[in-house]
Design a protein around this nucleic acid. Structure first.
Lengths: 274, 274
DNA sequence: CCATTCGGTTCCTCCTGAAGGAACGTGCCT
DNA sequence: AGGCACGTTCCTTCAGGAGGAACCGAATGG
C-alpha cells in the first residue's frame, strides 16, 4: 500500500499520461452545455490539436463521445452512461432511496439530499428540492467539504476512528462565521452525533442555511451514504427539528435494512404520513 | 469527414492504444458484480499485470475506480457517475419521461421501455416492468437491433432518408420466424409508421412477444427517443391495441413538446387514468 | 516454525507508438 | 478573389508506455 503523505497515495509515478489527458478531454465534452468543436476543446484543454483529435476519435469509437458529422461537433455519448449504469452501486442506492426521499420532501416540504463520501468530500447523489420559492438548492454531482456539512459530519461520525483521522485535515477551512475550525471541537461533536444518530449544521457551510442529516449504515455500522434535509435558517424551529430528526433517522434506518437485505422491518415507521 | 466504407468512419488509424486499453479495464471493473482484484482483471483483459496496474492507478486518481485498501479490490468510483450526470442529455431525458412512463405502466400494467438510437442500435434508457408474473423484461443499458424492434422501426421511420439508408444494413439478420429480412419490405413499413405515428412488432425480435412504440420528436421531426410497451403476444388484443397506441402517441407527443420547451399543451390527454 | 505460494509493487530496459509541428484541403466570410 | 478558420493528414522525433523479472509481505500449509 504505497502512499507517501498522511493522505492516501497519489503516486504520480505510475500515471499513464494518455489516459489522463483523454479523460480531461472527455470531461470537457461532458461538462459543456452544448456540443463542442475540436478547436474549443483544444483551447480549453491546452493540448495540441492533433492530440485532441486522436483522443476524440478514440473516445468516439468507444461510444464515450458522439460525433455529429453535420456540424463537426462532439457531445457526450451513451457509452459513459451505459458504463455508469452497469452494476453501479450509486444508481442502485439512488433508486433505493428515492421513495423515502420523496416522502420526506412531501412531509416537510424542504430540500432533501442524498450524499456519499468520496475522495474526502461529500458528493451529492440526489437532490429533491422543496417547492417553496426560498429553498436550498444544490445539484447532483456537486461536492462539499466534510467538516461543515451535516452529511459530512455523519460520514465522519459513523466511521472507524482510524479512517476518520485521515479524513480530518489538521486545518479546517472556514467557510462562514459558524464553521467549526478546531479539529478537537469537531471530533467532540462527532461523539454526540454517533450517540444521537443525527448530525446538525447551522450556517457552517453557507450563511443562513441549516441542515440535518442521518446515516445509512452498512452491516459494520459504517455510513455508506446519508440523507439530509436543508432549509433556510429562518424556517428553523425546535418543534420541527424533532420531527425532522425522527423522520430522517427512521428513513435512514429503513434503507440501511434494505441495503443489507435484512427484514423489511415492521411497518410502523416511514409511513406515507402527511 | 473521413469515413471509408458506407458506414461511419472507424478509422483505426488514429486510435490511441493506452486509452483503449484503459477503458477496457474500466469496463471490466464496472461490469463486475463485485469488487475485483488486480489479478482478476489481468486474466479477463489479457494484458500484462504491470500495465493493468498502471491503468488502475490512473483510473483511481481520476475517481473512475475506487481502491479498497483492505482487500485490495477495485470497484467503480463516482468519477464516472459524476461525468455521466454532468449535463448528460440521457439522464435528463429519462427524468422527463419517467412520469409518462409510470402512467402508461399503471394504465396498461405492461412493461414500458424508453430507448434512444445510438451506434445503429436501440439502447434502452429506462425500463418500467409490468407487475404481472409473465412479463417482458429487458434491462437498462442493453441494446437491440433496429429492424426487428418497434423502437428501432420508429427511429428509422422518423429520420431523413439519407441517414436512414445508412442505418439499414443490406442484409437483415433473422432473429425469429417473423423477422423482416427484406430491406425493401422494411422500408415500405416505415412509410406506414410515419403516417400512423406508431410502430408495431409481433414476435420479430423474440418469439412470443409483441411491442408497440411511438416517437419522441425534436423540432425537425426526427425521433430522438421513443417509448414502447412490450408484452406477451398472448395478451395481444385489438381493442387494447387502439388504447395503447393512443396512449403511447400522446405521451410521446407530450414529451416532445416538453423537450422543445414548447407550450405545456392542453391537459386533455396523458391524464392519470385508471 | 519454516517453506511455499500468491497477489501486489517496484525496477529497469527496450523500442513502440504517442506527440505535435507543419503542411494540406475545404468551406465560409469579407 | 483573397483570407481566415477549421478539420484532416503526414512525418519525424524521442518521451514514456510496455512488460519481463525481481522484490516483498501476507496468507497457507506442512
Amino acid at each position: 500500500m504505497a502512499s507517501e503523505a498522511g493522505d492516501d497515495g497519489l503516486d504520480d509515478r505510475y500515471l499513464v499520461q494518455p489516459v489522463l489527458k483523454a479523460m480531461q478531454v472527455l470531461q470537457l465534452v461532458c461538462e459543456a452545455l452544448e456540443p463542442v468543436s475540436l478547436n474549443q476543446i483544444v483551447r480549453d484543454a491546452a493540448l495540441p490539436k492533433t492530440t485532441v483529435f486522436r483522443y476524440l476519435r478514440t473516445l468516439a469509437m468507444l461510444g464515450f463521445v458522439e460525433h455529429d458529422p453535420e456540424a463537426d461537433r462532439y457531445r457526450p455519448g451513451i457509452g459513459l452512461w451505459r458504463l455508469s449504469h452497469a452494476s453501479s452501486p450509486y444508481e442502485t442506492l439512488r433508486q433505493a432511496c428515492k421513495p423515502s426521499m420523496k416522502r420526506l420532501r412531501q412531509r416537510f416540504n424542504e430540500t432533501i439530499n442524498l450524499g456519499v463520501l468520496s475522495g474526502g468530500e461529500v458528493v451529492y447523489l440526489d437532490v429533491l428540492e422543496s417547492e417553496r420559492s426560498l429553498r436550498m438548492q444544490s445539484s447532483v454531482g456537486a461536492t462539499d467539504p466534510l467538516h461543515c456539512t451535516a452529511l459530512g459530519k455523519v460520514f465522519l461520525a459513523f466511521r472507524p476512528p482510524a479512517q476518520r483521522a485521515m479524513l480530518i485535515p489538521p486545518v479546517l477551512p472556514r467557510l462562514t462565521r459558524n464553521t467549526i475550525t478546531d479539529p478537537a471541537a469537531l471530533i467532540e461533536q462527532l461523539d454526540i452525533i454517533r450517540t444521537t444518530g443525527y448530525a446538525i449544521e447551522m450556517g457552517e457551510n453557507e450563511e443562513g442555511s441549516y441542515c440535518i442529516a442521518a446515516p445509512i449504515l452498512d452491516h459494520q455500522g459504517i455510513a455508506i451514504a446519508a440523507m439530509s434535509l436543508s432549509a433556510p435558517i429562518t424556517r428553523f424551529d425546535e418543534g420541527a427539528r424533532q420531527a425532522i430528526c425522527a423522520g430522517l433517522i427512521s428513513a435512514g434506518g429503513e434503507i440501511s435494512r434494505i441495503i443489507r437485505g435484512e427484514p423489511p422491518a415492521l411497518t410502523n415507521e416511514a409511513t406515507r404520513a402527511a
